[in-house]
Design a protein around this nucleic acid. Sequence first.
DNA 1: TTATTAATTTATAATTGTTATAATAAGTAT
DNA 2: ATACTTATTATAACAATTATAAATTAATAA
Lengths: 147, 147
Amino acid sequence: MTEVHLRDALDTLKSTGVRITPQRHAILEFIIQSMSHPTADDIYKALESKFPSMSVATVYNNLRVFREAGLVKELTYGDSSSRFDFITNDHYHMICNTCGKIVDFHYPGLDEVEHLASHLTGFDVSSHRMEIYGTCPTCKEHATKVQ
Amino acid sequence: MTEVHLRDALDTLKSTGVRITPQRHAILEFIIQSMSHPTADDIYKALESKFPSMSVATVYNNLRVFREAGLVKELTYGDSSSRFDFITNDHYHMICNTCGKIVDFHYPGLDEVEHLASHLTGFDVSSHRMEIYGTCPTCKEHATKVQ
DNA sequence: TTATTAATTTATAATTGTTATAATAAGTAT
DNA sequence: ATACTTATTATAACAATTATAAATTAATAA
């Protein structure tokens, strides 16, 4: 699964004339296999044992490259730093208000909303984004235990 | 309309023991009457003729007060700074990829999605957020003229 | 009123995520 | 090999936001 995505992504990059460096490969691989929607700093820290001399700028540079190649989506929430999500199927995010955990879930067909919005506003629609907020099972558990 | 919202909002604030200062009043009023989802800096600039000595910190402080009182929602998009939106009915945002314009539209009942997400992930759901991206009529017009 | 206390604003410094710059290194093509 | 492009590194710059401390204002109580 991860391997297929990685191979496809590398092909996409090559086809746009982007060079596959070891750092670039590692960053991309980390994002794909990560289920945690990492921040730039998460990625930097995760790879520092493998690439002790890698610069933060390299992480940011490559995240931009991936974004421009349409491989990665940048997500901004209320908190300070952006999170990065490898683009696969259409999915949405369930976000815990307490611990910040992000869980993906799939839901097809919000086409209806897109159509309505387009009709009401006169926009041409290209994409949409949705997040649902709440409390994850772990935090619920913890809350009941504490009180 | 604006007046009703403002009066309600002031009541909410008073009931939580927050003092209504001139700056606070002006910031709140500006957000409510503004259709443009202003940034902190927008607010600061808009009020500087009225309050020449007002600090940026005051704007941020009060935005936090309003947020904590449930009056205002903070929205982060890809760009650098947060935007603030007075909370009225459930509505979503249509955002232009080209000029960044934000247009509200109303759409009831994404309860179904909330339920599904809750069922799939085990979260308790508190709220959700959705944005749709596209091209606004003005930018479409402009694009056709240019080419 | 006056004194006292708490809340708010102001001015400014500190912090932090991100971007820009310049130098170095690595890969590619002639 | 030489020149040329691209990527990485190290570091400085920037910009949004937050923290801090002093000054101001408002509310309360004697």
